[in-house]
Structures are given as structure tokens and as C-alpha cells.
């Protein structure tokens, strides 16, 4: 992928983020106008609106800075090339597979546990998401040292 294609993709992603952010913001405002200022949906839409809008705006700013700076463009292009080198692809694939394997065992274990102690899996899911991310990170660190 060349830098022009990368920047175009970044701009598209930024606009998509902002569209999601605006939709969430509209829902958030409608909820506020209706007096629904409490509850999960209010917090959720507010967080999505702020996160996606801010992320989208920052990506657009980065797009304009990068497109006007040739040395930055060259640096990103080099970084993109290095990110796709074979060892990094190998490390990402191996770590992803390991994290998936660990998570699969954890899901099976938690499912069994939730049945035994009669708890909803909803309370366990956030922990599971965190574990998946953490196990990928740990696998990546270990494999980077190993290979």
C-alpha cells in the first residue's frame, strides 16, 4: 500500500468515525431532551459520541498535517513497509493464535463456572475482553523476545 492510498483510507475512516459520532451525539441529545439523563444507554451514547467525534477530528487534522509534510510522509511510508515485514507478520499471527487459544479455554472455563455458580455471563464479558487484549499483548512481548 502506498502513502496516498493510506492517507485516503485514513480520511475515509475519519469521516466514518465522525458520522458514527454525530449519530451518537444526536441520540444523546434526544435522550437528554426527553429527560433520560441516567442509565447505561445515556452513558454509552455519550461516550461513543465523544470518542468517535474526537478520534475522527484528530485523524482529519493528522491527514492535513501529513499531506503537507513530505518528510513525515516518507517516514510513515517507511514505517508501513517495516510493519509488513515477514518477522512482524509472523509475530502478529503467532501472538493472535495464542491469544485466541487462551481465550477459548477461558471462555469454556467461565461458561462452566457461570453455570455452576448460576451467574450471568454479562458480568464476565468485560473481564474476558480485557483478558483477550492482555493475552495478545503478553504473547507479543514473549514472542518478540523469543524470535
Amino acid at each position: 500500500m502506498n502513502i496516498r492510498k493510506h492517507l485516503k483510507g485514513q480520511l475515509l475512516f475519519a469521516f466514518a468515525s465522525m458520522v458514527i459520532g454525530v449519530i451518537a451525539l444526536v441520540i444523546f441529545i434526544l435522550l437528554a431532551l426527553n429527560g433520560t439523563v441516567r442509565g447505561n444507554i445515556f452513558v454509552y451514547t455519550g461516550t461513543v459520541a465523544i470518542g468517535f467525534l474526537l478520534g475522527g477530528i484528530l485523524l482529519v487534522v493528522d491527514y492535513f498535517i501529513t499531506s503537507r509534510n513530505p518528510s513525515r510522509k516518507k517516514r510513515i511510508e517507511k514505517q508501513m513497509e517495516l510493519n509488513n515485514e515477514e518477522r512482524k507478520i509472523f509475530l502478529r499471527t503467532k501472538s493472535g493464535n495464542e491469544a485466541f487459544g487462551f481465550s477459548l479455554w477461558l471462555v469454556m472455563g467461565l461458561w462452566g463456572l457461570s453455570t455452576l455458580v448460576n451467574t450471568s455471563l454479562n458480568t464476565i464479558f468485560p473481564f474476558l475482553l480485557g483478558f483477550m487484549f492482555l493475552s495478545y499483548l503478553v504473547s507479543m512481548v514473549v514472542n518478540t523476545q523469543k524470535y
Binding site: 517495516l82 515485514e85 515477514e86 518477522r87
Partner: peptide, 8 residues
Amino acid sequence: KVSVSRQT
């Protein structure tokens, strides 16, 4: 020269 990182 071979387009990889120094770590490789």
C-alpha cells in the same frame, strides 16, 4: 538493504 527492521 533488505527492507526489514534492525530487530529482524
